[in-house]
Amino acid sequence: MPSGKAKSPRSGRRDPKVVIYPAWCKKCGNCVAFCPVQALEEDEWGFPRLARPEECTSCRLCEKLCPDFAITVGEAPVIKGRSAEEPAPRATGDRSTVDRRHSPERVPPVLEHHRDEEESDREET
């Protein structure tokens, strides 16, 4: 269940959550070129960056047109019963770069006991 209730000021839709995972990004430029509202731009190294978050409509086209699963749109997955300090588990040994949170370096997981706080924060604002 998505928990985001915050509305972006312009579109009135749910807050966009575009996350880029540089370790998998090959800087191909698909996401920047095909975002229908030009919300993304290339940063100085060639990686995409959400330059105009207020424009983003969470349409997920960038996510689907990314050949490398390096940009995703949506809520951070909730990790049950894990403390914030604990490192993310490796899926199968050290070689794996696939993680439940897709991936450890990128999406800070919303720990379950933090989620309620987050929700009440949101409702206040």
Binding site: A70, T72, R101, H102
Partner: peptide, 21 residues
Amino acid sequence: GSNRTIVYEWLRHDKKFPHVW
């Protein structure tokens, strides 16, 4: 569903990413 959850569920964990293409 979002790629965020699907990647973990459907991609092989013992393969090297980013892929070869």
